[in-house]
Design a protein around this nucleic acid. Structure first.
Length: 570
DNA sequence: GCCGTTTTCGGCCCGACTGTTTTCAGTCG
């Protein structure tokens, strides 16, 4: 989609204008960029269908920016942007990533030392030129150099599943202190964003010394960035930072709201507060300087006349408007899930027996469990052919007799390059459910890939399309596919879409929401290849929540009788 | 440059911290 490309250009225009110290325009460009980034529809389609007027309907896009978007769609370039780059050939995008450097200082460094990019900045520091400048010194020079080094060594964001364990340990340790009255994780971790840059932990307490002492002596810390009365930061072994903030109990709710973000949500919320004659900050909600709320987060939303907004929805993607009308969906919860339809057993490629899977499912108090091994094309997974699938059926029947939990027999069938399957319909017919997914030939153009998947979905035995975009967070991007068409087809033909809880997290939050809006239903599955992975269901549920999904949208929340009916219809 | 149940003109979120100053600009979240 051109959306990203244009968003990037608009964002950078904002950064260049920032360098020139122009007020307000930078924000205008950057909010238009954000809005474009969040757009569900393809900007090219919008322009084709509704022209310039349609483009102007995008929030934050007025006449001037719409014209620039049109120019890009027609010529592949925005002259205004090219001119800004010519005038100031500075790599603003990467320079602003360096901590302690913003537009003003970048422009200053360019004027004083002619610095245009990170490499030249590093060179200047190595020659100790920076610290001679007005407003810079030994310390800022050192900090900048460290930030460059860190950026070059990692730069990635972390999956929440990668940091969750550390977070749990820290919370448990700090909770034990009697000085800690309340404690919560805030930031993007609390919003359950798929990846986080750092972790924010918030504590309510009147005494802070002991808490800070404990915090900076936690296991896994490699360095301490700062240590103050109310705020300290540490760098963890894995490479990310944890910030701890201590506030008074009366401000805990407002601080939690503030530090949970997102930034965009907070900006919108504060605007709303102002329009109602309030002032909102991390210390509380005030009217005429009188404290009105702040102890509990819920009170702030209530005083503003809003339904409580769960953290997962706080992205300024319509949640405030919905909360004004008390029309927020009741989001799905982990406890609503009654089974898992994507597990791989040792009958094919993994090390876990079907019985292990069944026992683990019972431990989780599931009502049912689906076993879905790969089919034969996936040699590496020892994929099953028709014969072995029939053998597996016998084993599963035995297990069904032995245990109370209902075991469904399925498969994860490969969608071949031409959209056909690597296994016969006669075998699929015998299964309780059929997942289909792409595991090979990722590199196709959008049209061919879409046709391939649509053809696969037209097979009458298909229950669910697994990991529909093929992406793996931080590792592999989505393949080219027209999701709008896929979602429409899924809705019409009653095919479920998978919310995959593994590091794929596929569908992602945006796609989930757009599928839901088209009336699609989902499976949330773990894609288990090792027993422990059956525990990651929660990450799929988080994504679902971020996609505004309710229990009713997810088929594996149904009681066993109803899900049997659902599957039999296929 | 964008936007509108006080406005088509005049606003645009806000407080803390850092490193540098000697009262504050710039940056961050």
């Amino acid at each position: 989609m051109k959306n990203d490309e244009i968003a990037k250009i608009l964002f950078e225009i904002g950064e260049y204008l920032d360098l020139e110290n122009i007020p307000f325009k930078p924000r205008a460009y950057q909010s238009a960029a954000l809005s474009l980034d969040n757009l569900e529809k393809d900007i090219e389609d919008i322009y084709r269908e509704k022209g310039l007027k349609g483009v102007q309907e995008i929030p934050g896009v007025g006449k001037s920016i719409a014209l620039k978007i049109e120019e890009y769609l027609k010529t592949g370039k925005v002259e205004y942007y090219e001119e800004l780059k010519r005038k100031k050939p500075i790599d603003v995008k990467n320079l602003t990533k360096i901590e302690g450097l913003g537009p003003k200082r970048i422009d200053f460094l360019n004027k004083e030392l002619g610095i245009r990019n990170v490499a030249e900045l590093r060179e200047a520091i190595e020659k100790s030129k920076l610290k001679e400048l007005k407003g810079f010194g030994e310390k800022s020079q050192k900090n900048i150099l460290e930030s460059i080094a860190f950026m070059e060594s990692s730069g990635l964001r972390y999956l929440i599943s990668e940091v969750a364990e550390d977070v749990d340990i820290i919370l448990e340790r700090l909770k034990k202190l009697k000085e800690v009255k309340k404690i919560e994780v805030a930031g993007s971790f609390r919003r359950r964003k798929e990846t986080v840059g750092d972790i924010d932990i918030l504590v309510a307490s009147p005494f802070s010394h002991k808490i800070m002492d404990e915090f900076v002596s936690l296991p896994g810390i490699v360095r301490i960035w700062g240590r103050g009365e109310t705020k300290s930061s540490v760098r963890m072994k894995k490479g990310y930072d944890i910030d701890l903030r201590i506030v008074m109990e009366d401000s805990f709710g407002s601080a939690l709201q503030y530090f949970t973000g997102s930034k965009e949500h907070n900006v919108a919320l504060r605007r709303l507060a102002i329009s109602k004659g309030y002032k909102l900050n991390e210390y509380g909600l005030f009217k005429n300087d009188l404290y009105k709320a702040g102890k509990k987060e819920e009170d702030i939303y209530e005083k503003l006349g809003l339904q409580y907004i769960p953290p997962e929805l706080r992205e300024n993607r319509g949640e405030i408007e919905a909360a004004i009308k008390f029309k927020l969906p009741k989001l799905i919860e982990l406890k609503d899930v009654r089974g898992d339809f994507h597990t791989h057993s040792s009958f094919a490629g993994t090390l876990i027996s079907m019985e292990d899977i069944v026992l683990r499912a019972m431990q989780k108090k599931y009502e049912y469990i689906g076993i879905s091994d790969h089919t034969k094309e996936l040699k590496i997974e020892n994929g099953l052919d028709e014969k072995r699938l029939a053998l597996q059926e016998k084993e599963i029947r035995k297990l069904n007799e032995k245990y109370k939990i209902k075991i469904f027999h399925g498969a994860e069938v490969n969608i071949l390059k031409d959209g056909s399957f690597d296994i016969k319909n006669s075998a699929l017919k015998e299964l309780d459910f059929v997942n289909i997914g792409i595991h090979t030939n990722f590199k196709m153009n959008k049209k061919d890939m879409t046709e391939r998947v649509l053809k696969a979905m037209s097979n009458p035995y298909v229950t669910c399309l697994t990991h529909p975009t093929g992406r793996i967070v931080n590792r592999r991007g989505a393949f080219n596919i027209d999701l709008e068409k896929i979602f429409k087809f899924a809705k019409t033909n009653n095919i479920l879409l998978e919310i995959n809880s593994s590091e794929r997290l596929d569908l992602n939050d945006y796609n989930i929401r757009s599928a839901k809006e088209k009336g699609c239903k989902f499976f949330i599955n773990t894609d288990t290849h090792a027993l422990k992975q059956m525990d990651r269901m929660k990450y799929g549920v988080y994504q679902a929540r971020r996609g505004w999904v309710t229990k009713e949208d997810v088929i594996n929340t149904l009681p066993v009788r109803e899900i049997e009916k659902f599957l039999k219809k296929k």
